[in-house]
Each structure stands twice: as structure tokens, then as C-alpha cells.
Design a protein around this nucleic acid. Structure first.
Lengths: 156, 156
DNA sequence: AGGATATGCGTGATCCAATCAAGTAATTCG
DNA sequence: CGAATTACTTGATTGGATCACGCATATCCT
């Protein structure tokens, strides 16, 4: 199973301000969390745009590494199906994906990446170095710690 | 100084897929990082929309807790100045912010929140619980660890 | 001082993403 | 078979983002 990166509108670069408060352990952590999320979002967006992809296009292109229907895409990406129609149409116009009929349900379409879509997406992935670089800058023990702490922080 | 949350287009909810790889410590960490960033982005967006704010509006509203010029906003939010013009105009129409002349430079405008902008933004902040909740679910020692690990992972 | 240049902001055009309402075709259910 | 449901598309509309351009004000330079 692929890891699925969420990008809901990472086109923006706007910010939210949180009031200044004394630098307790909790608020220092909140600052660090924001800085991390921000860096991650920015890296993701930059990698997409380097390859002429909008964040939306990069998301869809990533999803269709394995064959998917429009409806699956819409559900996974939490957006309206007609939005997917539009995005897939643009990707198809660039010959990055292909819309195939589904023999088992003729209402449905199977979306797959074309070879050139594979290639472009591969390059895009290469240039999205942030998570790899982040992991690489830690020791093995630290990686395990960070993984556990992130999960605990999310309430997992 | 406030913490400034980046939101560049957190309107989207699309995803990027990363190829499946053996579950090494590094890739488990990459999954956890993504899950965390995703949860953070989603929470941020949900909090904004609960209060009738787009992510863009919430960002700007947050920034103008202290008086700011259009140009400062554009720079901080890494977007075109004319985008700020548009967003501030909408916030002003809702009487959440106010555009004041700058006596020291008559080309420039000072943007400030109105009382009702303060109120709305306060409520919004309350409902953006994610970072607080995340911090709260850890012990003091874990908070310090996580802060340090995030900083190290970012290469700080 | 006074003209060239730079700065701060606004306007209009255009594009993309997102949603909604409505429609078509195919499937499923009774 | 007919009604309801599902899968997707189309068209309209909104908002965010950028760009090209323009206006007013400031600054810089002899």
C-alpha cells in the first residue's frame, strides 16, 4: 500500500497566527509542530511545481500508480467527483493518465498512468526529498522514537 | 511573536502516493510524518470552515493580530500582493478587518482586525485544537523529545 | 529643485480548483 | 419490467492565485 499524501490546497502560502504565550514545553512543541508541517507542505508543493504539476495533479497522479476508478479517487481525495473528472481530463490531455472502460461495469472508468505519467511521477517523487531527508538526519533509535511520538501525539 | 501557520491552499484534499517499500524504520517514519501532517492540515481546515472562514481568510486574519501592511502580508504569506488585496477586501466587507491609512507613507495601508474580527478569530483558534491536543497527550519529557526530534529532522 | 526610478497598492483578465445542480447511461433491486 | 441507485459528465458559479498594467507616492541623484 502506498503512503498517501494529503495536499488539500497546498497552493496557498498563507499563515495563521497563534497568540504569543510564555515559552512552555507545550508551546515550544506547538511551534515545532507548525514549523515541521509548514516545511513539509512547502517541500511538497515545490516538488510538484518543479515538474509542472499542480498539487492536485500530483495527488491524482500519485494515486493512480495502481488502477483506480473516478469514484475511488474522489473518495480518497475527499472531494467532489466532478472535480476529479476535471483533473483527470487535464492529466489525460497531457497524456499522463489514461481512462479505460471497466468491462465489469460500463458506467465506470479505470484510470491508469501512462508510461510518461510513470516517468514524470517518478521524477517528482525523487525531488520530494523532505521526508527522506528528515528520516536520514536521525539515527535509527531516533527514527523509532519520532515515529512513536508522532503516533502518540495523534492519539493513535 | 505569534506562531504563524502556513496554509497554502489547504482547501484541497488530494493526496500523493509513494510507492510501497519494505517497512524499514525510515519508511515507517515517513508514513507517520505524512499521517501527522495530514491530520494537522485537516484539523486546520476544519477549524476554519467551522467558522465560515476559508483557509486564506483565516491566515490573513491571524496575521493581522498586530497591524500589518498589505506588502508585509504578501511577503509573509508568500503570495502576490494583488491576492492580498482581494482577500483583505473580502474580510473588510465582512467587517473583520479594517484598512487604515499609514500617515508615514501615504501609498501604504495598515490592516488591523476589528473587534468582531478579534472575536471570530479567537473562536476559530479555540476550535483548532489539534496542536494543543497533540501536546497534551504527551508527558513533559516526551514533549521535549518530540520538539528536539522535529527540529533535528528539519535540519535545524 | 526636479526628473528618473522604485515602491505600495489596486484593477482587470485569466486560470485552476472546488462545489453544486442537473443530466445521462448503466446497474441493481423488487 | 420498472424504480431506485450508482458512476460519471456537464455547466454554472465561486474563490484563490498569478500576471500585466496603471496610478499615486516616495526616494534617489545630480
Amino acid at each position: 500500500m502506498p503512503i498517501l499524501y494529503r495536499i488539500k490546497c497546498v497552493d496557498y502560502t498563507l499563515f495563521m497566527a497563534v497568540p504569543s504565550v510564555p515559552a512552555t514545553a507545550a508551546t515550544l512543541l506547538e511551534q515545532a509542530m507548525f514549523a515541521f508541517v509548514d516545511a513539509y507542505n512547502q517541500a511538497w508543493e515545490a516538488a510538484a511545481s518543479e515538474h509542472g504539476l499542480s498539487t492536485a495533479h500530483a495527488c491524482v497522479l500519485g494515486r493512480v500508480e495502481t488502477r483506480r476508478s473516478m469514484g475511488e479517487l474522489a473518495e480518497e481525495l475527499r472531494c467532489d467527483a466532478s472535480n476529479i473528472t476535471q483533473i483527470v481530463a487535464r492529466l489525460e490531455a497531457r497524456e499522463l493518465v489514461h481512462r479505460e472502460p471497466n468491462p465489469e461495469d460500463r458506467r465506470s472508468r479505470q484510470i491508469v498512468r501512462t508510461p510518461s505519467g510513470d516517468e514524470l511521477y517518478g521524477e517528482f517523487e525523487q525531488s520530494f526529498e523532505f521526508p527522506r531527508a528528515a528520516a536520514a538526519s536521525l539515527t535509527d533509535a531516533e527514527r523509532e522514537q519520532l515515529t512513536a511520538l508522532l503516533q502518540k501525539a495523534m492519539g493513535a
